[in-house]
Design a binder for these strands. Structure first.
Lengths: 339, 339
DNA sequence: TTGAAAGCGTTACCAC
DNA sequence: GTGGTAACGCTTTCAA
């Protein structure tokens, strides 16, 4: 375990100079630089994280978190993880400020970001709305050397340094695969319930699902309806869908508001033989799995979505660790027995 | 973020004294102690990990890893994770020594441990054989203040400080749950293939499976055979089982040597309508899932089994963090689409 | 262009 | 019993 001190001694220079070389700071003689680099190589030096973190504490890092203030209880788990990482990072003299924005206008998110920047954040984690204004704002921060990590939903065209979240298409494909496995009768007549048309993840999941459905002869999507992630609306549209399509024997809920939809299934006495697959592991969904109405749910590691973005920012700004651009969470399958 | 320095200043004592109080070292006046404790409380002090780690590097920590030298390719993934954590911890002046023991005699494991202790390890991670001699050895280390973490398979009666690995019963129950979901005909006639009778995890998985089977009217276990985790043996016993039981329509492989068993299924032309469920995600299993012969496999996060035990030892010995006793890995379900 | 030294927070050792 | 100080590895600032 070679240290900067070792390199300095062997190169016959001071630690300060070694630091300048290793961090590509200017103001060092080319000869000195190459000498130091040679020694560094020969020692296979890797910087000590504890030392770097300790030193970085003088920076008084502040991070901002912005998430669309959604009613979806999925985000409860994200918030729990957020508060745990907040407490963890506070031990390194590092503060975290959280802003939930209520509506779905990008104005709210942008205002929240501006406010955080004014408060002096050095990095931003955001569960972004899929809107152009947010992309622009992220790029603006990038120019100010404030790195951004997106989570839950990505903005691939922005200059965010990383994304943490689900691979939506894979989730959708997994649901389709499960449906095929569970199918008893050899012919799937499927009702799909989307959430919000404007949310990337809901639409992408459906695409993934369709990818598999297309190449499977006995999977037929009867219709797709939209719940707007609202329980009452979901109840209504599912009722309508099932009433007009007695042949439906499988339902795919791609978003929240699952409970309302399931209520409709029960009211119409259509539980028997009905395959119901969902996403995420919120309490109401768990209850319906226990009950047997839902057979399986596909999840996206909310805890990791809460912690990893901040960990990435912290590592980036303290020990200079460049993150992977795409950090996909696992596509987890839960049934009654492994809930 | 209060530091020891703050506490020292506010209590009117030196940092050394504060350190003595906080770490319950003796040789400090009761009055001083209570004064310091009071101040500490009022500041909600939490020690800084970076500082502790940095300071702990002077201890020159060495950790030993012992695992039964199994042919099971599952352990390949564990080894990959081991080498990644080895490289990670080497940055903190911390060395890791790995010993694989070939046979299944406890003598080998005990010898390996002795050797590591002689080399001066401060902690041990072990995938232990389920034998009395190993338990005794762990307890002996405990007396010498060398903490042990078991992984992959637990020894709950020993004085190990933690276990990292699967909840076997839950794995077995999950397999049973999947089987019920996939069942097409409404009556499961099941063949179970065990691995090693002496390995706790194989037997426990079967118990978990039986728990669910018992309370399900249409699940009937036809017979249980043992492969000794050997491919040829597995091929032979599965061939025998299927030949004498034409009614079998579902197979549960609880351990390794899956490939041989699947070969038998194909040779006998029994793929059609046969449900095949397995554990772990080794290359040959993945191929059989792609092929469609195996419908699902239940996994146990090998990477976490490789890294977490050492992380636990490191945290325990550097920052004094007491681990949870039971660190269960997730019971992951994989099908073709989320492989 | 380079060196020296202080500082991040904790622990350990040597004086008193 | 207690205080002072060096040490862990890195960064940064001030002098030279």
């Amino acid at each position: 375990m070679a240290t900067i001190k070792d390199i300095a001694a062997l190169s016959g220079v001071s630690r300060g100079t070694v630091d300048r070389v290793l961090n590509n700071r200017k103001g060092v003689h080319p000869d000195t630089r190459s000498k130091v680099l040679a020694v560094t190589k020969s020692l296979d030096y890797r910087p000590n994280k504890a030392g770097m973190v300790l030193s970085a504490q003088r920076k008084n890092l502040k991070f901002g978190v912005v998430m669309f203030g959604t009613n979806n209880p999925f985000f409860d788990d994200v918030r729990v993880a957020l508060s745990s990482i907040t407490s963890e990072l506070s031990r390194y003299n590092c503060e975290i400020m959280i802003r939930s924005t209520p509506g779905d206008s990008d104005k709210d998110q942008i205002d929240a970001i501006d406010e955080l920047v004014k408060a002096g954040i050095s990095g931003l984690a955001i569960a972004p709305q899929n809107q152009e204004g947010v992309v622009k704002k992220i790029d603006e921060l990038y120019k100010k050397h404030i790195p951004t990590v997106t989570f839950n939903s990505d903005l691939p065209t922005s200059k965010r340094i990383a994304y943490v979240g689900s691979d939506y298409r894979k989730s959708g494909r997994t649901i389709a695969g499960l449906m095929k496995l569970i199918d008893h009768v050899g012919q799937l007549e499927i009702g799909v319930v989307g959430g919000l048309r404007s949310v990337l993840c809901h639409t992408e999941r459906i695409e993934g699902f369709k990818d598999v459905a297309k190449e499977t002869s006995n999977m037929h999507i009867v219709d797709t309806v939209w719940s707007d992630d609202d329980d009452l609306k979901c109840h209504e549209v599912v009722r309508g869908l099932l009433s007009s399509h007695p042949e439906i024997n499988a339902m795919y809920f791609t978003a929240g508001a699952i409970e309302g939809g399931c209520r409709a299934i029960k009211e119409l006495g259509r539980e028997k033989g009905m395959i119901v697959l969902t996403h995420d592991k919120v309490p109401s969904t768990c209850a319906l799995i226990e009950e047997g109405l839902i057979q399986a749910t596909v999840c996206q590691q909310p805890a990791i979505q809460g912690t990893m973005p901040l960990q990435i920012l912290f590592d980036y700004l303290t020990i200079g660790e460049k993150p992977k651009a795409l950090n996909y969470t696992d596509t987890e399958i839960y049934i009654k027995e492994n809930l």
